[in-house]
């Protein structure tokens, strides 16, 4: 498996506060990779360290197999990032800034100009080239930030919370954009919106208290759990409960009034997840129970809460 990013034993402290405690991470090429973690887990510090903004205290970073020294730049043109908290220059129009970035990536003046036009078109903002950053809304600013990250089609693009602070329609637009742009580049995204991450990413890592506590593909993270979750139109009756438990594959079930969800646990040795879900659906239909949603396996949110509810094991 070829890796876009390989991180080993990465450590970073701010004074006496250690944020990254030995992060190991492999990001394969050609995927949209999600990094999730609670506030303060170290996601932005991890991105800042692999981008060379913060020299690490220990550990190694490789971009496409090439070692990057602490605080050093990744190989030119292979990598870019939408930093969470960086600002464009307030006195220069955005088109000129994007051309400048292109020139620094090794493009000729002509290529930089055409790349500027291409990336602004791709985010649907060709008209902002002559505008200064102060004239942009938060959402437009974010989209221009994404545009700069795709100048020159780098092989790995990191987007640190690309939809934070956006309204639902702008966030949807940005997600569509990321999907579109990810056809040409490996993309690594962080977000607190886990359903969005589930929708976008095919591989995940969960960062908790400065350590990666789990890294797997989507099926591995959420599909391993032998459970089917139904969101019902009403409460669970005793008859429904008995009928479900009568299925040979079902081992247990629980109902939550808070979330209005029925969680039916099953033994995958008896029936595969799709067959078990089919059998459970049959019971619901027979009983005339209405349901509005069904999910096989746990949600990313469930897994996230499970993985981050206890301190990670040291080592």
């Amino acid at each position: 498996m070829s890796l876009a990013l390989r991180v080993r034993g990465l450590q970073k402290s701010y004074g006496s506060h250690t944020v990254l405690k030995g992060v190991d991470l492999d990001v394969p090429t050609g995927v949209v990779f999600g990094l999730v973690g609670p506030n303060g887990a170290g996601k932005t510090t991890l991105f800042s360290t692999v981008s060379g903004y913060l020299p690490q205290d220990a550990g190694a970073v490789e971009h496409f197999g090439a070692h990057t020294p602490p605080g050093g730049a990744p190989p030119k043109g292979t990598y870019s990032i939408l930093p969470q908290d960086a600002a464009f220059l307030p006195t220069v129009n955005l088109g000129a800034q994007l051309e400048f970035y292109g020139r620094l990536q090794g493009l000729s003046a002509k290529e930089a100009k055409s790349e500027r036009a291409r990336v602004l078109d791709s985010v649907g903002l060709p008209e902002v080239a002559r505008k200064k950053p102060a004239m942009l809304s938060h959402g437009m600013h974010k989209r221009v930030g994404i545009a700069q990250a795709f100048i020159g089609t780098p092989r790995l693009v990191i987007l640190d919370e690309p939809t934070a602070g956006l309204d639902p329609s702008a966030a949807r637009q940005v997600r569509g954009l990321i999907r579109e742009l990810s056809r040409a580049s490996t993309v690594m995204v962080s977000s607190h919106n886990l359903s969005e991450m589930e929708d976008l990413c095919s591989e995940f890592a969960i960062l908790h208290e400065g350590r990666i506590v789990r890294q797997d593909n989507l099926a591995g993270v959420i599909g391993g759990a032998a459970v089917v979750i139904f969101r019902l139109g009403g409460e669970v009756t005793e008859a429904l409960r008995e009928a479900m438990l009568a299925l040979p594959c079902v081992t247990d079930l629980d109902w939550s009034n808070d979330t209005e969800r029925l969680r039916v646990h099953f033994d995958p040795e008896v029936l595969t997840p799709p067959k078990a879900a089919q059998a459970m659906l049959g019971v619901l239909v027979e009983r005339g129970t209405s349901f509005v949603e069904m999910q096989v396996g746990k949600s990313l949110e469930d897994r996230f809460i499970e993985e981050t509810s206890t301190p990670p094991a040291a080592g």
Binding site: Y53, A73, P74, S80, I81, A86, A87, Q97, Y101
Partner: peptide
């Protein structure tokens, strides 16, 4: 101060 350097750092070296 403005962290604009973050747009430059992965495109060139310090």
């Amino acid at each position: 101060e403005t962290r604009h350097a973050r747009y430059l750092l992965f495109r060139s070296d310090r």
